[in-house]
Design a protein around this nucleic acid. Structure first.
Length: 780
DNA sequence: ATAGGGTTAG
């Protein structure tokens, strides 16, 4: 046992001394320090210095004027930084008259440890302005920060500095640069750098191989792998793992599993990282049989208790929809392991067992178990993917109260929830978070922000986020195109579609869905046909059902109903409910009874329990005053026990999302809302407006119809918004069904009468109302 | 006194 003297006392170990510190309290400790100030550095160097000790020592150093001692202050700086007290660390850094390389390095490393790469780079540039040059230890760290963001621009600048400062032959520096180029998606520059190296070690080879695998370049990765072996380097497990995880990452799951089999045949010993990766691939392939084989291999190898493997097994069975096997693995595991618990929460949610997932999470939270950021992210993702958007927001708040900080995965999991219910303020708060924690340049965060702002009606902010992204992928391009399409901006969607291709990004199935649906919002049939035909002819992508559905909508909305119907008859697949639904809703727009009945007949067979189809057909009949047929459809619905989905709208007022139901009789402000709507109705009638009774399904008398229209949830939400926000304040409403024609007219009137900008998002698209005009130009 | 590159749950 080591022992040492401090303050005239003999201590056996540091915890003993820590105890003494706690007992001694500040005065006693300061007294001891005073007498033996030469020992303070020794004490601060010990491994178990807590934050309170750091503060105590800091106080002492300030009091005694020792703060001029650069060694001491740098040590303090590092202690603060490693306790993630960046405010204190910065204060100290700024108080040092001539900070040196050590001071900056400490802070940069600490920021990088937390993945706060933006902050790392800021401190780095601060260091450069002090005229201090990095050493061979600092360069790899800063390059890694560029890769982590990722920022190709900063990475290239750094590469320049490295070249002129003569560090480019350092193996660590080289590997970090190579990794940076790969992370930024610049395979060619990475390979050029690789070619220029005189010495290549295992790490460099592995990095490049993993890079190629990650980008789905199977052949290049394999060639490199064999070249590496020809060069006399044996792959030690990391190279194999790099390939397997790389293939996984680019969605080449069968390549990943066959690589694992090869590795096994060649006699290499897989480690827990290998098994975890291959199990993840097996899960994505839903290859239950192979899963069982690897499971038994794991047991044979005695790797069963490995924590990573347990959660990978749970994950694999979850992906294979084998919830029974999944629970078995969990029940046999050490149930106090967070990894296993997280995998279970995700597995349950993935299989639609949302309530079980929530219940499991709550149970784990009640135990001694320390839930981590992955646990919270999993449950937040579960909620935002399953329509529990309010719960997702609430859990995010609860997580922060527990002292956990969101990261670059949490934010993109939360943002869809904000978008779904148009909680703009919550979305903006999440955006601020991402800037503060330095992840706003992350491509997943960026794409999720684009989507969130678009769904919240702020497409100009989507464009701003898009412009600011240092790196974009297919998802980012699709997100901005989907945003413009949703806002009915066909021109912008098409421009983006072409700009994407100019940038070298190839479109996929979703890109075409976006551009086709944009065309359908504006009735651009020629353009629609052009893109539809170019799919297979120019891009080698075969149109799927959803593209046919888009074309049916496009033709149908534009009034070319017969053309739409003949397209359905010609299509190479059996038309599904989406395709017939597109035809039926177009028939509703143009009130075409004949084709509407045909479409409805197919839909009643395909999805007999969807009330929406019956409502549409009945609307078509009602528009032609065919009340007997309306009754017949209503009787069909009644006999099957089906009811119209209740209309529901949301509006964010004072940072809170409010939900209003059609004909809501319980709302606390119901009286004021109805009064407001009645007043507006009087004004509207004065200006020559009459309610459009076509949009009322029932054959009731005129006054009742007026009342039913007044009860539409989007009108209630707008009245609620008018009552609870200052005049001139824009209103944003979302609705769970399509906006009704009468509401459309009324909202146009309100926008001019009240002088408000009003946007309404329905299931299909956005309507922006201003000065009595709607952005859809009444084509929808 | 600070500290380095490749693989690693959501």
């Amino acid at each position: 046992m080591t022992s040492f003297h401090f303050g005239g006392l003999l201590f056996y170990d540091l915890s003993d001394m820590n105890r003494c510190w706690r007992i001694a309290m500040t005065r006693q400790a300061l007294y001891l320090l005073d007498r033996f100030n030469h020992s303070i550095l020794h004490f601060l160097n010990s491994t178990t210095v807590s934050l309170s000790h750091t503060r105590l020592a800091h106080a002492y150093i300030l009091k005694t004027g020792l703060s001029n001692d650069n060694h001491l202050t740098t040590k303090l700086l590092s202690l603060y930084a490693n306790n993630f007290c960046f405010l204190d660390a910065n204060l100290i850094l700024n108080s040092i008259p001539n900070p040196n390389l050590f001071c900056f390095s400490t802070l940069i490393h600490a920021f990088s440890k937390l993945n706060n790469f933006g902050h790392s780079l800021r401190v780095f540039s601060q260091m450069l302005t002090h005229g201090i040059l990095p050493d061979s230890y600092l360069f790899p760290s800063v390059v890694k920060a560029c890769a982590g963001l990722p920022s190709l621009k900063a990475g290239r600048q750094l590469h320049g500095i490295i070249s002129v400062s003569g560090f480019s032959s350092d193996a660590f520096v080289q590997a970090s640069l190579l990794h940076m180029y790969l992370k930024c998606g610049h395979l060619r520059e990475a390979h050029k750098l690789f070619d220029g190296l005189s010495q290549r070690d295992m790490v460099i080879w592995s990095a490049l191989i993993a890079g190629y695998s990650r980008f789905g370049c199977v052949d290049e990765a394999k060639v490199l792998f064999y070249e590496m072996r020809n060069a006399g380097l044996e792959p030690n497990t990391v190279s194999w793992n790099g390939m397997i995880t790389g293939f996984n990452h680019s969605g080449l799951y069968s390549e990943a599993t066959s690589m694992f089999q090869k590795m096994h045949l060649e006699g290499f010993q897989p480690d827990s990282a290998t098994i975890s990766s291959v199990l993840s691939a097996i899960g994505d392939l839903k290859d239950f049989d192979m899963g069982i084989q690897v499971h038994s291999y794991v047991v044979k190898q005695g790797l069963g208790p490995d924590k990573c493997i347990v959660s990978a097994l749970i994950d694999m069975y979850g992906k294979c929809s084998c919830t029974l096997e999944m629970s078995e693995v969990f029940n046999e595991s050490d149930q106090m392991d967070v990894g296993a618990c997280n995998a279970l929460v995700t597995g349950l949610s993935r299989n639609g067992l949302v309530d079980n997932s929530m219940e499991a999470f709550r149970r784990f939270k009640g135990q001694e178990l320390e839930l981590n950021i992955v646990s919270w992210t999993s449950i937040i993702a579960c909620c935002s993917q399953n329509g529990k958007d309010m719960d997702a927001l609430e859990l995010f708040r609860e997580m922060q109260l527990e002292g956990l900080k969101p990261n670059s995965i949490t934010i993109p999991c939360l943002l869809p929830a904000c978008g779904n219910i148009a909680a703009l303020m919550h979305g903006k708060a999440a955006h601020c978070f991402s800037i503060r924690i330095g992840i706003s340049n992350d491509v997943y965060v960026g794409s999720a922000l684009i989507d969130m702002y678009a769904k919240c009606g702020r497409i100009e902010l989507s464009q701003l986020c898009f412009d600011k992204m240092p790196n974009r992928n297919l998802v980012s391009w699709n997100a901005i195109m989907k945003g413009y399409a949703m806002h009915g901006k066909a021109k912008e969607t098409m421009e983006m579609f072409h700009e994407m291709q100019r940038s070298g990004q190839k479109p996929d199935l979703i890109s075409f869905t976006c551009v086709l649906s944009a065309c359908s919002q504006k009735g651009l049939t020629d353009e629609g046909w052009f893109y539809f035909n170019s799919m297979s002819q120019e891009h080698g992508i075969e149109a799927r059902l959803e593209h046919y559905a888009c074309m049916v909508t496009l033709l149908g909305r534009a009034g070319k109903l017969e053309e739409a119907y003949s397209m359905i008859k010609r299509m190479p697949f059996k038309p599904d409910a989406c395709v017939w639904g597109a035809l039926l809703s177009s028939c509703r727009v143009h009130n075409n009874v004949g084709l509407g009945e045909i479409a409805a007949e197919h839909l009643f067979k395909l999805e007999p329990r969807n009330p929406g189809n019956y409502i549409l057909l009945s609307n078509i009949y009602a528009s032609k005053s065919m009340w007997n047929e309306v009754d017949r459809v209503r009787d069909m619905m009644n006999s099957m026990g089906l009811r119209k989905n209740p209309g529901c709208s949301w509006i964010e007022v004072k940072n809170k999302v409010h939900m209003l139901l059609a004909g809501d009789k319980l709302h606390s402000q119901r009286k004021q809302i109805i009064e407001k709507l009645n007043k507006l109705s009087v004004e509207m009638k004065k200006s020559g407006y009459f309610p459009n009774h076509n949009f009322v399904l029932q054959d009731v008398d005129v006054q009742d119809k007026d009342e039913i229209l007044c009860g539409h949830s989007e009108k209630l939400a707008i009245a609620f918004g008018l009552l609870n926000t200052p005049s001139g304040y824009p209103l944003r409403v979302i609705k769970n069904l399509r906006i009704c024609g009468d509401c459309h007219v009324v909202i146009k009137f309100i926008s001019s009468f009240e002088g408000r900008e009003i946007s309404v998002r329905d299931t299909n698209r956005f309507h922006h109302f201003k000065d009595g005009v709607c952005s859809c130009e009444d084509f929808w």
